[in-house]
Simulated scan of single mutants.
Amino acid sequence: MSEIVFLAGATGAVGTALIPLLTGAGYTVYGSTRRAGRAAALEAQGVHPVVVDVFDAEALRAALVRIAPWAVVHQLTDLPKDLDPARMAEAAALNARVRTEGTRNLVAAAQAAGAKRLIAQSIAWAYAPGPRPFTEDQPLDIDAQGPRRVSVGGVAALEQAVLGAQGLVGTVLRYGQLYGPGTSTAEPKGAMPLHVEAAARAALLALQHTTGGVFNIAEDGAEVSSEKAKRAWRWAANASRP
């Protein structure tokens, strides 16, 4: 396989878990980071490092046009270390900016570069109150208040940009609450847990299938259903666990 994949957020928890899956599947991987000091670590993993800020639309566009990726994988977030509660209100706004402005820039750059597929990380706990387990056809909680309104607004903007991008097959992965290496906790937590390696496996499967859309990606439970991903991709929450 010779397809080029641009991985935005290559040094994050999901990006780090995804790199060996992509390279193992034969993809040529270009991975982005904002910090030049992380380039050597990416190179050591077999990745071509790209030092660029997603908010610098011109530089991002130039980088993707030069690389000409077949697919773009969006795993960017802006969250504090260990999800520090004292910083989470600020983080909601920062993360929403990544999902709105950052996604908009990434979509435009992908289109300019002639990419064919776009996979993006979203979240599975943004649904409006309703029957459980939540399925992909249920609405997002866009009428929420406070910090949740900011977060859900960012999620809605990201998903609209990805799914509405002309010329791209867009796939949205609504991840559960991540745990495992590189995350804030080693053990499952919350009502819809998801091991980071299973999250990465879902991104790989999304690349390998031609049908886009929205997919819940979480472990079995009462809150959210991942049956769509199981049927479409034979994804399993424990497939990539040790």
Results as ranks from 00 to 15, higher is better:
Ala199Cys: 12
Trp233Ser: 06
Thr23Tyr: 07
Val65Ala: 03
Gly114Tyr: 11
Leu118Ile: 15
Thr16Tyr: 02
Leu42Tyr: 02
Ala91Arg: 12
Ala86Ile: 05
Ala36Asp: 09
Ala17Val: 04
Asn95Gly: 00
Val172Pro: 00
Pro129Ser: 03
Ala59Ser: 13
Ala229Cys: 05
Thr33His: 11
Leu178Met: 08
Arg149Ile: 07
Arg174Trp: 13
Arg104Gln: 10
Leu178Ala: 01
Met192Gln: 10
Val155Ser: 07
Gly213Asn: 05
Gly114Lys: 13
Pro133Asn: 10
Gln75Leu: 14
Ala128Asn: 05
Val162Met: 01
Thr211Asp: 13
Ala25His: 15
Val73Asp: 02
Ile67Asp: 01
Asp143His: 12
Leu79Ala: 11
Phe55Pro: 03
Ala68Asn: 03
Thr171Ser: 11
Ala124Leu: 08
Ala39Gln: 12
Ala165Gly: 08
Ala41Gly: 14
Leu207His: 01
Arg201Met: 11
Pro69Trp: 08
Trp233Ile: 04
Asp56Leu: 13
Gln166Val: 12
Pro139Ile: 04
Ala198Val: 02
His48Ile: 12
Asp84Thr: 06
Ala165His: 13
Ala17Met: 09
Val5Pro: 05
Gly31Cys: 12
Arg61Tyr: 00
Met1Leu: 05
Arg234Thr: 08
Pro139Trp: 03
Val214Trp: 03
Val172Cys: 04
Thr16Ser: 14
Ala237Ser: 15
Tyr27Ala: 09
Val52Leu: 08
